[in-house]
Design a protein around this nucleic acid. Structure first.
Lengths: 217, 217
DNA sequence: TAGATTGTTAATCGATTAACAATC
DNA sequence: TAGATTGTTAATCGATTAACAATC
């Protein structure tokens, strides 16, 4: 059997692809039919060669002289990113953050469908948040297996993060989107994507400090 | 005048420093007095040399044979990251996400103090969320100037993101922590830190797809 | 002392950027 | 055609990793 040679794509490139998509949707909305890399790069504060390289890494080629056809480029990106067929996810933690994630409608255009929420709070169980059911956490494993859900979103207080992650793992979740600040201990087969606000804040603070040093307020 | 030669620190290194801090706080809580880079690296799935290099970049040196003294290392990191003196921030957008950010107590240990919130919704104005006042958005510029706030946190619907960013800029905010998916257009003097969920989701999805290819569920 | 660990210089790796031929 | 833009190879840059001397 010949395994299809999946082109390696770097994480920085992968992170930029959704930005291109967003920019192109806007361009399409303005009735634009073709774009060049120069055009995309200018709109996103990047350099043209980087855009071209990134798109090429995603298997997308343009046409010399004309650039890229906007609708084709959009659908190519969506196909590459797997945004056509939605992946189901379960969210654990029906607090403010959980509600914010449930309320974000953009995910449905980005390949993610958060189908339900789980919590331990009896006042929340049985209710709905942004139209999605809130179930008791002890129903988690059963529903994961029944519905073939592969992604767990962790939006619980940090004190219970590891425990809930282990519940997810026992239920055979394959990937955890971790919104807690806890470094999870998981087996190597489990994918963990950390959303690390402390790191981002550190970058913001340092950049601000440097900016203030250059031109004090 | 001699400008102090501020050591250049890379963004990847800067993003790891809060992780070290978190790990060390846990170690300190367990009564540990000294740690080596090997120890820290093992706990965070990194390599020892990277930890040593990172700490060195932050101006922190250890002692051959013994490693680093835990309490000293913690306070050195806090000092380097500027977590001792809190920076004040104003949050705009008192929705679910805004409430989640206001409710996250960790920020106070990470140099950030979200002192108040602003919104346009008359039902929210005058109230409190997690103990913080909600003001009308048209009070924003006045309060920023009066209180010398430099950081604006943007947690509004994407349709008004650019407009609110411009209100922040006119009020002389210096840095914007952007939780919307909008690419903001700002003058070069303004620091924008994007919290890009679409990019993170793209990385998660691709990693999951690759994992499923290797070992299907 | 012996050995574990650090500090620092060098090598490697990977991403970005530059150069230029190919193309419509 | 001329020229704008792409595709691809090469050069540069920066971060990670390796090697090894210095040190307590």
């Amino acid at each position: 059997m010949v395994r299809k040679n999946v082109a390696r794509i770097s994480v920085p490139t992968l992170r930029r692809l959704p930005m291109y998509h967003g920019y192109l949707k806007k361009a399409a909305g303005q009735g634009r039919a073709f774009v060049s890399c120069t055009h995309i790069a200018a709109g996103l504060h990047l350099v043209p060669i980087q855009v071209r390289k990134d798109l090429h890494s995603a298997g997308i080629d343009g046409k010399p002289r004309v650039g890229y056809e906007v609708p084709v480029l959009i659908s190519s990106l969506e196909k590459f990113l797997g945004w056509n067929n939605l992946s189901k996810a379960y969210l654990v933690g029906a607090g403010d953050l959980g509600a914010a994630l449930l309320g974000y409608r953009g995910f449905n255009d980005q390949g993610l469908d958060i189908v339900a929420t789980f919590d331990n709070d009896p006042r929340k169980i049985g209710g709905k948040i942004h139209g999605k059911n809130v179930y008791a956490l002890d129903k988690f494993a059963d529903l994961v297996k029944r519905n073939g859900v592969l992604i767990g979103i962790l939006a619980v207080p940090r004190g219970v993060a590891q425990d809930v992650a282990e519940i997810m793992i026992r239920a055979r979740i394959r990937a955890i989107w971790n919104f807690t600040s806890v470094r999870l201990l998981v087996p190597p087969s489990i994918i963990v994507q950390d959303e690390n606000l402390a790191s981002s804040l550190a970058v913001l603070s340092k950049r601000l400090a440097q900016s203030l040093q250059r031109s004090p307020s």
